[in-house]
Amino acid sequence: MMKTQDSMKPVGTWEVRRRIKIPALVHAADAMAVEDAVRALSGVRNMATDVEKHQLIVRYDASQSAYQAIVEALESAGFPPLDNWWCRFKGSWFEFTDTNARDNAHAPPPACCNKPPK
């Protein structure tokens, strides 16, 4: 069942929202299976499935989880994402931004006031 868009807005520093097209998502039972598979991942904050649009909207902390982990969970549950050039392109971009967010989240704090550390 689709939730309001306000509950799907990223609220934390490293939170992101991804829309994933899933062609095999056609029944409410499929939606439950998809949600169960993704909910098991660490860092997942919220999700909503839309059976009519065949999509999953997931909000997660990119410093703890990654787009590729969500795709692997969907594939292992029997619901692979749509495989066309646009979805592959978006998936590559999502992986790139998630890697950057994870690297930045775990980076040491910068030096203060443009002074090199002692």
Rank of each mutant, 00 (worst) to 15 (best):
F79A: 06
F79D: 02
P116A: 12
K9T: 15
W85G: 06
P10H: 07
T4E: 12
R17W: 02
E75D: 08
R39C: 05
V34K: 02
V51K: 01
E95W: 03
L41P: 00
Y67G: 06
D61T: 08
K3P: 02
V51A: 10
A105F: 12
L41T: 02
G78E: 01
A111L: 03
T4Q: 12
G91F: 09
Q5C: 10
Q64A: 13
I57M: 14
L82M: 10
A28N: 02
G43K: 04
K90V: 06
M47E: 06
P80K: 05
C113L: 10
L74W: 00
S7Y: 09
N104P: 00
A40C: 01
D61N: 13
K21H: 14
I22F: 12
D36W: 09
N114C: 03
P10Q: 13
P108K: 04
A77P: 03
M1Q: 04
M8F: 07
F96I: 10
Q55I: 13
A107M: 12
G78K: 06
A73N: 03
L41R: 05
P10F: 05
F96A: 11
N84Q: 03
S65Q: 07
N46K: 12
A73W: 01
T4R: 14
A111Y: 07
L56W: 05
H27Y: 00
K115V: 12
I20M: 04
E52G: 15
P116D: 12
R102D: 07
P110I: 07
T99K: 14
K3A: 13
M47A: 08
P116N: 05
D83G: 10
A31F: 02
T97K: 13
